[in-house]
Design a protein around this nucleic acid. Structure first.
Lengths: 239, 239
DNA sequence: GCAGAAAGTTGCATAACATGCACTTTTGCG
DNA sequence: CGCAAAAGTGCATGTTATGCAACTTTCTGC
């Protein structure tokens, strides 16, 4: 059995190379656009050979979107360390909000990465793939936490719902980046709270409800975005 | 301004070519595996030139996963024709269950497509992309329905949640294909119903609740899957 | 119906992508 | 130190993907 694997020169160097490739990719593509940057450009910026790139990523798109393995491992641990009787969505919310807080420290880096992905349909697909990686990781961790089978329906749906809220929140944050990411994420879960009642009239009909209790702790971004919607012009498949 | 576009020889031929390419792709990749089939193989089977392939799809993966534009348009119309005061998730549920019923007629075709996608990580990413296409379409339709802006947070979260449930349901159906797809989808929304309460203890602790009311209409697939979970061996990024 | 416009198909050329293989260098460990 | 495992590299090769310039089919108005 291979030893710990965490810490050690080898592991550190590997992370360094991955990070170098990823950040070089983000920077270059941000400057020139996806198609104007070759993988070779990226490897030269990161000072490794072209061939080495494919030891880390299978494509340019993956380099720009794949979630950090270390972050996934951290999320998994955080989730497992939540109190066992805590409802799944609460645990997910807290873990993801905490994660968003940490990510907020690299705010500009993330914003640029997101805006880069927004531009190219290929990157949107790749980004969708990376969300499902996160989702699977969370679902597996949840199943562990509940001691249930790995394909627990509850766990999968809970993870899907949470990641859905997160995804929408992040998409919104990309436009409203003045607000801390963590707040937007929490607002996303709040919106989830609104939508979750199958048998309730749509949002606009609820303004007459007692607003104090539930709406108390909500962040200001839960309100409708100010940015005018970019008019939908196409409905083509994807790219 | 271009005329109607629906019906007419041109449009019919285009659909025929797209269908031919897609089904050839599914068949060949199902037989030989993704990497053993070149795009040229697919175009020869569909009896068009290699160059024509790229008039329809940007990649092999897209040919195997992109949602049918006609189906998207139909879903949009169905959603818009639901009663205006109906809660978003109810409308989504009914539309998607109805869609699943129609899709159930091409049961084997869909099952093969799904099992093909399951095998290759690239296809899983592409599939994730196609889910988000569906999600965006539904979110836009919902926003229309509510008369709100195109980036309505409620609509986006509702669509994300619904597609999440659908996605998990379809994933499950791939293993439990003896049950009609529509039932599994409905069960997915039922599971959503369980998960949606942020402040409630996890599923296993709720067995003492009055079971009759909510659980009455639930399909039998809502129970834990029989199939033993394929043990998670890796947690690598994606491919 | 017919002429022109618009849309779709095709072949060609070309650069980038992606992978297998063999080889070298680095790292970890006794 | 010396060996084994892991990572990096160069090379060869087939595939993918796109722009461009024909050519063909379909559509529209007259």
């Amino acid at each position: 059995m291979p030893p710990d694997d965490t810490s050690g020169r080898r592991e550190r160097k590997k992370n360094a190379v991955r990070t170098a490739l990823r950040s070089s990719a983000v920077r270059l593509v941000g400057e020139k656009g996806l198609d104007a940057v070759t993988i070779e450009d990226i490897t030269e910026a990161a000072d490794v050979s072209l061939r080495t790139f494919f030891n880390y990523f299978a494509s340019k798109e993956e380099a720009l979107t794949a979630p950090d393995p270390e972050r996934l491992a951290r999320l998994r641990l955080e989730l497992l360390s939540r109190p066992a009787q805590e409802p799944a969505l609460v645990a997910l919310r807290e873990v993801l909000v905490a994660d968003a807080t940490e990510l907020g420290e690299r705010r500009d880096e993330w914003l640029r990465q997101l805006s880069v992905c927004k531009r190219d349909p290929r990157l949107l697909v790749a980004l969708a793939g990376s969300w499902t990686v996160l989702e699977r990781e969370l679902a597996a961790a949840l199943a562990d936490r509940l001691g249930s089978a790995d394909d627990d329906l509850q766990a999968q749906v809970a993870a899907a719902v949470a990641v859905g809220a997160l995804r929408v929140a992040v998409r919104r944050w990309r436009n409203e980046s003045s607000v801390p990411l963590a707040e937007v994420v929490r607002a996303g879960f709040d919106a989830l709270d609104d939508v979750r009642h199958l048998s309730r009239p749509p949002a606009r009909a609820r303004s007459s409800l007692p607003a104090g209790s539930r709406a108390a702790g909500r962040s200001r971004v839960a309100a409708r975005s100010i940015a005018p919607a970019p008019t939908r012009t196409d409905s083509r498949p994807e790219r």
